[in-house]
Each structure stands twice: as structure tokens, then as C-alpha cells.
């Protein structure tokens, strides 16, 4: 399977960091997923072959980690924290607001494939609650209005790319 040069570079650097090959598995899966959008059957077979594991062993690991997915997601994965510190400052309202705005529920994806939504556990932004992550970007001290702007900014980003 052809993976990007950047992935190969990272993979080959990492594999020398550990006495056992399979240690690279979790970070490699996440890097691959960032490029492919989700962990495809082909990718799983490729990793199995590279690390001398079975497909099943890889799937077993994937199912444990909440960020890893074998299902396609939107281009922007909106992850709203509703854990205690965020809940106290309106995290649930932010989640509800996103649900209404995007017309999808927890783990849903918009029809245009642009956004997915996820209710997540603490993302380490408790002192700047309520907080959300869109892919890897943190958005903090959110209000419904601020959340609108955040979503709008991502929409705009895509339109700009398309028009280039």
C-alpha cells in the first residue's frame, strides 16, 4: 500500500525507538488515520504485515482507543467536551447547539461530509471551559455564538480551498 512520504519518514524513524516493532502501532495508526480519514481494511492489512501481527490483533487495539476509527468521518471532527468542568460552564449547551446547527447527533456526519460531531471526555482544557476540539485544534471559553464562528471559519476554509 502506498502511504505518504511523510508517513514513511515518521514510521521508519519511530521503529528504531523501541526494542519491539509493535510499539509503533498506536501513534502510526493515528498518523495514518489523519491522512486517510479512517483506518481502512487495506491499511490494517498493511500494518499487520509490517509489524508481524494479525489483522485481528490490530483491530483489537483500534477498538480500545477512542480516537481511532474504522468508519469514515467528516473532514472536520467537532469534539465537544461535556465532562464536569465543561458541564459547569455550559458544555452541554454547546453540544446541543452543535447538534442543532449541524443537524446531526453524537458520532453523526453531515451529508456534505464536512462535519462530524462527537461528545468527548475531558480534553485538558478545564480552566478554559467550555471547550471543544475540531480535529486537533482547541477552541476554548466557548459560547454558542463563538461556536457558530468556529464552524463558520472551517466552512470558509474549505470554500477558499475549493476556489483556489
Amino acid at each position: 500500500m502506498k502511504l505518504s512520504d511523510q508517513f514513511e519518514q515518521r514510521f521508519h524513524a519511530m521503529i528504531n525507538h523501541y526494542p519491539t516493532k509493535r510499539s509503533v502501532l498506536v501513534p502510526s495508526l493515528l498518523y495514518a488515520q489523519d491522512e486517510l480519514g479512517y483506518l481502512t481494511d487495506e491499511l490494517i492489512a498493511e500494518m499487520a504485515q509490517r509489524l508481524d501481527l494479525t489483522d485481528l490483533e490490530i483491530r483489537n487495539v483500534i477498538s480500545y482507543y477512542s480516537m481511532l476509527t474504522t468508519q469514515p468521518r467528516g473532514k472536520f471532527n467537532v469534539q465537544v467536551c461535556t465532562n464536569i468542568a465543561c458541564m459547569l460552564r455550559g458544555g452541554e449547551e454547546i453540544l446541543d447547539h452543535c447538534k442543532r446547527k449541524l443537524g446531526i447527533g453524537h458520532k453523526g456526519t453531515t451529508r456534505d461530509g464536512l462535519f462530524s460531531l462527537e461528545e468527548v471526555e475531558c480534553i485538558g482544557a478545564c480552566s478554559w471551559a467550555p471547550a471543544a476540539q475540531v480535529n486537533y485544534d482547541f477552541h476554548e471559553n466557548l459560547t454558542p455564538e463563538r461556536m457558530n464562528e468556529v464552524l463558520q471559519d472551517y466552512r470558509r476554509k474549505v470554500h477558499q480551498q475549493e476556489n483556489c
Binding site: N83, I84, A85, E121, C122, G124, A125, C126, S127, W128
Partner: peptide, 11 residues
């Protein structure tokens, strides 16, 4: 791994 709800310092 900093994941204990309420904790955002290692970050």
C-alpha cells in the same frame, strides 16, 4: 496522558 477530568496543567 493527562486525562483526569479537571486537570489541564501538563499541557
Amino acid at each position: 496522558d493527562e486525562s483526569e477530568p479537571g486537570t489541564c496543567k501538563d499541557r
